[in-house]
Design a protein around this nucleic acid. Structure first.
Lengths: 240, 240
DNA sequence: TTTGCGCATCCTGTATACGAAACTGATCAA
DNA sequence: TTGATCAGTTTCGTATACAGGATGCGCAAA
């Protein structure tokens, strides 16, 4: 970036981390579309590191399911079929429902207060209805759910959910609820969820979250205009 | 193994795979107990490969949650707290319940028949009650559940479940239901599950599986004599 | 024009080298 | 006795080298 961009002086660490971050971002923003090959040497040169950390980053992405590595073939960015949207929504619903149930008996007062604040802010965004407000809503919504996940204090749960969220993000790309009615329904769900937390009722919180997630699915693109099929070329599938 | 054990001739590939398999096995069988350090160089020498594939294997185990790698510190075999048994059981219950629900509308006749066969065999094992029969029961049980998971045809579901099963296996080590009553209850659940599949009823199948899993939890060690705390030495915890 | 084969090239898997961070344990002061 | 400091050693992260399987293209034959 600066004048000394390629001086290997200022940072000898975290090359692998950097490689992972960059690749993840490139995949998520579509710069590396489905079917694109990840060539270790090229990426290494591109990122200014050696093949070793690039390799590690690719393996990590493969472990998360974003990239396919088969035998000695080049790694390729996975293509996700439309019918997986359904599975991801349901999977997420089950996992986040469990998160909510756990959070119900574990959320501390400050976290609860934080949730209320976020809910209020989301309501404001939903009321505004501008594009910017909608984007803001999405961000707040992510934080809302993340806060609940943190509150659930389930390590394995969080680990299981992570790739699901990542892949869903990738599949739905920039799709976000934009219809006012959906936003308002979400806000309603959030309030109900908070109420369940206040009651410290795991069962209720779980059900509420499940409802919330599955409702989002119905509002989502899985039953409407395609989200997948955005691939320009039928890039020759890695064979066998 | 043979007279040419260290000739690097017969196989130049799959060193990483081998390293992973060996390490996984050593962790699961307790040869590498919780808290043990995984030193790349030592393992490399031990396995007769270089550090590179060993490193890859360790990262893979870390991604699956069996091993902790923090910064530049040595990788260490994770220690699982007793209170995680609960989480794992519930997580597994939610995921396998979803698997059963999906399988209900996807299982083909041959697979269903296979399930019936396994159920019958398990019943025989339960009736026998010998130690061998019990071990056999456990194996059949695993295959039963795996068959359902396959039948669910949910790729992300399977990916999410994998580490959960692996960690649970590790935590419960060699613990298996041995009490006759539990085995019989399991058999009953299996039959009910199969009935739900025959009815092609996702809701029923899901509930049945959830019941089955949570019932196993109650019968399990999480509320009885300790399973953790089997560590002999209080191996100096990796600090910070 | 299409299909199959062979060769040049690319790319990956593994091994090895090297600098830097972390660990060890021995010494010294309070 | 206890706690901190520091130098030697260990171990890791990254870079680089090399061998062999994958890839892709040209050319010949149908």
């Amino acid at each position: 970036m600066g004048a000394f961009s390629d001086t290997p002086v200022y940072r000898m660490v975290a090359a692998a981390e950097k490689a992972y971050d960059v690749l993840l971002q490139r995949i998520q923003c579509g710069q590396l579309p489905s079917g694109a090959f990840l060539v270790e040497g090229d990426l290494a040169r591109d990122l200014g590191v050696s093949r070793t950390p690039v390799r590690e980053a690719i393996r990590r992405l493969a472990a998360e399911g974003l990239v396919l590595t088969e035998g000695r073939r080049r790694a390729v960015v996975r293509e996700f079929a439309e019918d997986q949207v359904e599975e991801l929504y349901e999977l997420r619903a089950r996992l986040e429902s469990y998160a909510a149930a756990r959070a119900a008996t574990r959320l501390e007062a400050p976290a609860l207060e934080h949730l209320r604040t976020l809910a209020t802010e989301m309501e404001a965004c939903a009321a505004a209805g501008t594009e910017l407000a909608t984007a803001c809503f999405a961000d707040l919504n992510d934080r809302f759910h993340q806060l609940i996940l943190d509150g659930a204090r389930g390590e394995h749960l969080a680990a299981a959910l992570r790739p699901v969220l990542q892949i869903q993000l990738l599949l739905l790309q920039r799709y976000r609820h934009t219809i006012r009615e959906h936003l308002e329904r979400s806000c309603w769900h959030h309030r109900e969820l908070i109420r369940a937390f206040e009651l410290r009722d795991p069962e209720l919180a779980g059900r509420q979250m499940e409802l919330h997630m599955l409702s989002a699915r119905s509002a989502g693109p899985s039953n409407g205009a395609g989200v997948g099929a955005a691939v320009l070329d039928p890039i020759p599938e890695a064979k066998r």
